[in-house]
Design a protein around this nucleic acid. Structure first.
Lengths: 262, 262
DNA sequence: ACCAGAGCGA
DNA sequence: TCGCTCTGGT
């Protein structure tokens, strides 16, 4: 038996909005410590990792580890039926092949429950090592989203270069080229809006903007985003989920001079 | 060498939004006194004329006259990457075929530069004589926009008739007909919202609403618009750009009883 | 607080 | 491709 109650149900809605375009089916791994998901995107280029710790739930019960295979599009459809202020409860029986989503309106005047069939999904739960990164940039999530959107009107790939002074996003396309430089900037009133560069070594890596723009669908989850980069590791784009965990996206850099694959 | 710095960058963004649907390619003529553009729309029916005087820029340098041929759609894409509060600087070298747009965020924490290839565009720079008009109407730009939009849901052409009392906009279509009369009205608190008729002789002219609706894309540039009309001259629709110049649209009247051309 | 433009979903 | 919803600007 498994039962989670999440008062801030909109969190779950935002998480689904952020990943459902990238991943169609995935196993939710439930254990006593929390609720997690790992999945490659459909073209097997990017990896999505979600963690929601049990402490973030108002009520969390998980008698034994359970892997729930869900079609994320269908799950997303159901979560769209929850109001933004609704309390969401997720339930499943240990042996069953059904998950139940329950939505309670804040006033308790409307209680909905939705049942969804679970699926068998073969997935290798990859152990992702926590690595040291040559550079980590933290910046306002909205600004990162804007930069990725703007650059994709010019080109297909972005070169992210980190130096002590700041981070530079560059692209080039048929109509011209673009460089956007963000200075380190910690003096801002709100720490949420700071741009912080932790640089051990400068890096300069190239990524497909298409994936970046998918990742930034997670912008509503957090005020800030962090980009962790090393020359021989996948980029990690992380959105912290307040008091609960994170949503991370991993993307391998493009090898330079090989930008012709669509 | 040429370099303009425009603190109110949103002006340039609005200008581009206003003309890019009408004109695809145009030469920007730069001289020591300012920055201007003249171009026919793609169907060679309407003419767009822009003037931005050098005094309106915070910094303006133009060593020698330069004609920069730009694809306005591409330029517009780049300007969309500027924030509304950004300071925009435009730079070009005398011999080069490149123009650079630089955007500085108000906080100076984000600096972007975009490079665009210039094009060779053959254009006859027409000398447009300043004429005397039989009637000039000045009215709130938003009101004019609303009238053109409303009338185009009824008919394809508008008859603008000016008398001492006011200006009448009429149309007729399959579903019926419409007349909108605006009285002269200078008593309003804000002179911006006045409707002023300067009539030497009454006029009544017919225009294609399709073009009118394109022209009113310039509405965000100014609170008021002026319509200058004579029976044997093109209509001039002018939006003043505060302290800098104007954006004008010229459109020949339709000959009556010849409204079948789409 | 209202209106308009952009992005997303059907 | 059209309509709806959401976000941003006035």
């Amino acid at each position: 038996m498994l039962e989670f109650r999440l008062v801030q149900g909109s969190l779950l809605k935002k998480v689904m909005e952020a990943i459902k375009d990238l991943v169609t089916d995935a196993n939710f791994e439930c254990s006593s410590t929390g609720f997690s998901l790992q999945a490659m995107d459909s073209s097997h280029v990017a990896l999505v990792a979600l963690l929601l710790r049990s402490e973030g739930f108002e009520h969390y019960r998980c008698d034994r580890n359970l892997s729930m295979g869900m079609n994320l599009n269908n799950m997303s459809k159901m979560l769209k039926c929850a109001g933004n202020d609704d309390i969401i409860t997720i339930k499943a029986d240990d042996g069953g092949d059904i998950v139940t989503f329950m939505f309670e309106s804040p006033s308790q005047d409307k209680i909905s429950d939705f049942e969804m069939k679970l699926m068998d999904i073969s997935s290798e739960q990859l152990g992702i090592p926590e690595s040291e990164y040559q550079s980590i940039v933290r910046m306002p999530a909205a600004e990162f989203q804007r930069i990725c959107k703007d650059l994709s009107s010019i080109g297909d790939t972005v070169i992210i270069s980190v130096t002590k002074e700041g981070v530079k996003f560059s692209t080039r396309g048929d109509i011209g080229s673009a460089n956007i430089v963000c200075r380190q900037n910690t003096s801002v009133d709100k720490p949420e809006e700071a741009t912080v560069i932790e640089m051990k070594e400068p890096v300069s890596l190239t990524f497909a903007l298409r994936y970046m723009n998918s990742f930034t669908k997670a912008t509503p989850l957090s005020n800030s985003v962090s980009l962790s980069m090393s020359s021989d590791l996948p980029l990690v784009v992380e959105y912290k989920i307040a008091d609960m965990g994170y949503l991370r996206f991993y993307l391998a850099p493009k090898i330079e001079d090989e930008e012709e694959q669509s």
